[in-house]
């Protein structure tokens, strides 16, 4: 199934306000520690990096490791500084990047 992601960003915020961002990405997060029916190891295939950019500047990033569930949900806080675009990038072991973005109006 093609990866898809959803994000929840407040549409508006006051300058300096700390806002919560919620994200969820569809991914099987194959840990690399399971074996198939024939006893062969199933190769690891997880998202290993998540990055959030605010008008182009990185404001939140995290490295991910095995033992994170499939379809991971992540929420975090950032400070609203200016109106613009918030972008999200999930990169997996195959180098595939799932992207999402949202607009925010800051007054």
């Amino acid at each position: 199934m093609a990866a898809s992601a959803k994000v929840r960003v407040p549409a508006t915020a006051k300058k300096g306000e700390v806002i919560e961002i919620k994200t969820q990405v569809q991914h099987e997060m194959e840990s690399g520690q399971r074996k198939d029916a024939a006893g062969k190891a199933i190769p690891r295939q997880i998202i290993n990096k998540f990055v959030c950019k605010y008008n182009g500047a990185e404001v939140f990033a995290s490295d991910w490791h095995p033992a994170i569930s499939a379809n991971p949900y992540l929420s975090f806080f950032i400070t609203a500084t200016e109106s613009g675009k918030i972008e999200f990038f999930w990169t997996d072991d195959k180098g595939e990047v799932t992207k999402a973005e949202a607009e925010i109006k800051v007054s």
Binding site: M1, S4, K6, Q26, Y73
Partner: peptide, 17 residues
């Protein structure tokens, strides 16, 4: 809690599909 909020509910990846 995961079910209470459709945003958190991963089922919606399928339902939306």
């Amino acid at each position: 809690a995961i079910q209470d909020d459709d945003f958190n509910n991963p089922s919606f990846f399928w339902v939306d599909r």
